[in-house]
Amino acid sequence: MAVRPIRLFGDPVLRAPAAPVEHIDDGVRALIRDLVDSVEPPGRAGVAAPQIGVGVRAFSYNIDGRIGYVINPRLVEVSGEPERIGEGCLSVPGLWHEVSRYPRARVVGIDLDGDEVILEGEGLLAQALQHETDHLDGMLYLDRLEQADRRLAMKQIRESDWF
């Protein structure tokens, strides 16, 4: 349907926990099409519904050429020793900071038919699963930064041309 504009840091929709999808209807189908369209541009690994202004639990992903979505995802497992890894966010453009993430993750949700979806992986997929479920809980990766990194990130945001 459409590549939707990404909401930026400071928009309240990014800080509110997203509501579960109760019924699959034409509105949800249109949202999923927009999420998939919105994650396709180069450089995008994931887009959560709140990032396009919709406060429901759904996200799309684009990892290693594999594009998909999940509705009502729950992060059910993370494993391995957390590692500091470079991360950015479409809602905080131009910033890149190290954040602690688990190297493996599993998300369980549903698809548009109501069938169970299990997404699990390592590396970038694990990072994206954690990042996108954080969005659905009203968190940004900035919230996971160490104190000194967070101060620097907030300074960079204040000095940015988009804030």
Rank of each mutant, 00 (worst) to 15 (best):
R84Q: 15
L14D: 09
Y69V: 02
G94L: 10
S79F: 00
S100P: 11
Q147R: 14
E120D: 12
R101S: 03
A45S: 13
A58P: 00
L142N: 05
R29W: 08
R33L: 13
R33M: 06
E120T: 07
D111M: 08
E40C: 14
P42D: 13
D26S: 15
M154W: 13
H135R: 05
I52C: 08
Y102A: 10
E120H: 02
Y69G: 03
W162Y: 06
R150Y: 11
Y69A: 04
E77I: 03
V70F: 00
G27K: 11
M1C: 12
V13D: 07
I157R: 09
E83N: 08
N62H: 15
P73G: 07
V107G: 03
A19S: 15
G109V: 06
A153T: 09
G80R: 03
E87L: 00
I71N: 01
G121Y: 02
Y69N: 05
G88L: 04
V107C: 02
I71C: 00
R4M: 15
A128N: 10
K155N: 12
V107Q: 00
C89H: 02
V107A: 03
I24P: 03
V78R: 09
V21L: 00
G43Y: 00
M1S: 15
D137I: 08
L90T: 12
V39S: 11
Q147Y: 13
E159P: 03
L75N: 04
F9Q: 04
P17E: 08
Q156M: 13
L129C: 08
L124V: 14
D26P: 09
T133G: 05
G138E: 08
V39P: 09
R57K: 15
R106Y: 08
G88A: 06
R144S: 09
G123P: 00
A16T: 15
Y141D: 11
V70H: 00
R101E: 00
R29N: 07
T133R: 02
P20G: 11
P103M: 03
S100H: 07
S79H: 06
R66W: 06
D11H: 13
S160P: 04
P20I: 07
I85P: 02
P5I: 03
L136Y: 08
G88S: 09
V3L: 14
L136P: 07
I52A: 05
G46V: 05
G55W: 10
L112G: 05
L75V: 06
A18R: 02
D149I: 10
Y141P: 12
L142C: 06
D113A: 14
E132P: 05
R150V: 07
